[in-house]
Design a protein around this nucleic acid. Structure first.
Lengths: 218, 218
DNA sequence: ATTAATATTTAGACAAATCTAAATATTTGT
DNA sequence: ACAAATATTTAGATTTGTCTAAATATTAAT
């Protein structure tokens, strides 16, 4: 599998939202930052190789085999992201570009050893689940912190309100993007929450919780 | 710099034995497993890019800039080899192929963080020195263990006698390829040695020492 | 149901990296 | 110093992945 072929497979996978939906030539072209005519050529090639089902004017989706390739790429990408953050102290938002390169390294032994070194992580630094060696993995959804039930654990991935006061609050309470948050308790009276972040217990109001996005794997 | 260009630069570097000697088209072709005509084309390109000095029929060597590129590649290759052995428990002889891929990853931050994670190693698992960030590095030489002075430390990289009894002796004494050996003392009378391997002190005869290759950085 | 707008494909060209075969230069042996 | 052997380059072709422009198919709108 060529570097370029792998990139197209990943594009089809991601545009299909992990559901392997049929995606259009133009969608792929936009994602890959190429022209539709280039996509048509590549779709024919991927079809011949048995990794994609392509029908003229109808769009393309992955075959069973293509899906396996895509999941392996996603697995490698996310494992490397964990490595960069956990072992090399990269920041949350610095890992993507390098992981795009590292995901193409071909060595099953390398991938599995890395998985082991990292303690078989379930999610990457963006809270997205990491496919297992045999390609199974959970779906992730993004929800506001005040909408999840008690006992839920997830990764903090964004804010709804990005005003200075709110961001200052988060900073003061040591809540940062990429942190894992566990909901310990919810106060019925005012909807305030008791949560755990980086091993510390804190209490936050419903308003705060209504402005924090969590990514949770179901 | 293209993947292919980088491979040619490394080939020129290695054929020049780290001395940046002029190397011939045919030598490069053999090393790269391509045809001489392909090499000619690439040499012209590398010359135009300012990384090599190529003169028709005369051969090629690297420019100052090309040498820098080569040393960066060697640095990355060897750091990844250390990573694979130290962190992922790869064996001595399993690392090369994967490192060939990893050395092309472009991220200065990644390289330097890796260097730090590994504790700024001086040599790779084959005993070859690792260039520093700014391109300085020591040369390594291969010598028989009985020929080095007391106090010398090096990496065990091979055997002269590969008979079963000798290999069995090494195994019994826990001496393996890739191990670091330090010469503590030499007995003048019979030339026997007192050495340290993996934290253990052992004594070996001159005959044993005369059949073990050590790689030492001067 | 036709036309207009949009999406997709085809045809032909290009750059990178390679190859083969032929031409040319250099080196070696006498 | 000259012929033979060897090394190197040139010319022209091929593959991969891309592009533009033109042709064709699909979809949407009246």
């Amino acid at each position: 599998m060529t570097l370029s072929e792998e990139d197209y497979i990943k594009a089809i996978y991601h545009l299909g939202k992990g559901e392997n939906n049929i995606v259009s030539t133009n969608e792929v072209a936009e994602q890959m930052k190429t022209k539709p005519s280039s996509v048509t050529d590549m779709m024919k090639k991927l079809s011949e190789k048995g990794v994609a089902n392509y029908r003229k004017y109808k769009g393309v989706c992955l075959t069973e085999h293509g899906l396996k390739v895509a999941l392996t790429l996603v697995r490698k990408h996310r494992l490397w992201e964990v490595f960069l953050v956990e072992k090399l102290n990269f920041a949350w938002d610095e890992v993507h570009e390098v992981a795009e390169q590292l995901e193409h390294i071909k060595s099953e032994k390398l991938t599995d050893s890395l998985d082991k070194l990292l303690g078989f992580p379930q999610v990457d630094p963006h809270g997205d689940p990491i496919p297992s060696k045999n390609g199974e993995f959970k779906k992730a959804v993004k929800k506001l912190l005040n909408e999840v039930p008690v006992g839920t654990s997830g990764t903090c991935v964004g804010v709804k309100d990005s005003s200075a006061p709110f961001l200052k609050f988060l900073d003061k309470n040591r809540i940062a993007l990429g942190d894992t948050i566990l909901v310990l308790e919810k106060e019925e009276f005012d909807g305030s929450l008791h949560i755990q972040v980086k091993g510390k217990d804190i209490r936050i109001s419903d308003q705060i919780a209504a402005n924090l996005y969590l990514k949770i794997t179901e």
